[in-house]
Nucleic acid binder design. Sequence first.
DNA 1: CTTATATGCAACCTTGCGGTTGCCGATTGA
DNA 2: TCAATCGGCAACCGCAAGGTTGCATATAAG
Lengths: 115, 115
Amino acid sequence: MSRKSLSAERRRRNYAPIFAALGDETRLSIVAKLSSGEPHSIARLTEGTHLTRQAVTKHLRVLEDAHLVHSVRAGRESLYELDPGPIREVREYAEVVSAHWDRALARLKSLVEEG
Amino acid sequence: MSRKSLSAERRRRNYAPIFAALGDETRLSIVAKLSSGEPHSIARLTEGTHLTRQAVTKHLRVLEDAHLVHSVRAGRESLYELDPGPIREVREYAEVVSAHWDRALARLKSLVEEG
DNA sequence: CTTATATGCAACCTTGCGGTTGCCGATTGA
DNA sequence: TCAATCGGCAACCGCAAGGTTGCATATAAG
């Protein structure tokens, strides 16, 4: 289960699970906290929210399944850290769709002007 | 309801609904079809899928609520077209998070090297 | 006018998601 | 050793998501 092979698998057009994982405010806020680079424990990530630790744990599981995050056990706590790969893929997806759209518009425009 | 004001509202950090709308393979394929620039009717979007027209209609509703798509009635059919704004916002979000992460990593690295 | 096409609306079903509670094991620290 | 802290596991709950079927309505085509 090397990271390389995982990344290769992912690139095979499975964007939906990534978007789905990001489609929740709680999870977006977790991503925001972790994007500081500092690993956070579950208890730490639960602080400030009105949620149960279990709820946060479930959200972390979702993020982990989408490879947006990974955890390392450190003593009695497990530290979560951001995994930036999928976020880059999201950016690439958005760029591709935007580019496709822009080219299509340009084509339509030139058709109209020629006509 | 000018496009400007809509875009301004959206920019207020409501990324979750956009991601959620994109977090489904069927809807991603709809977006892909529409990114060609050519408006598609519901019947047209249903062709090739193993889904009911009603199911596709519901997905279109979700995309519409997230402002990823809008429809125009043309005779007896309603044509759907891509709305590129939210996709751009997705790209911006991904860029911001990536940049934040990269800066954090650079900071950590320099700390290690100094120490 | 009649029929076929394209959609809308509403009810209904099943499943998954977000969330909670309760209990148990492991690690830390006094 | 004993208590407190951090997590994992499992059961349970309500509700929305994804999907279907059936029927109604408007437009197009013959």
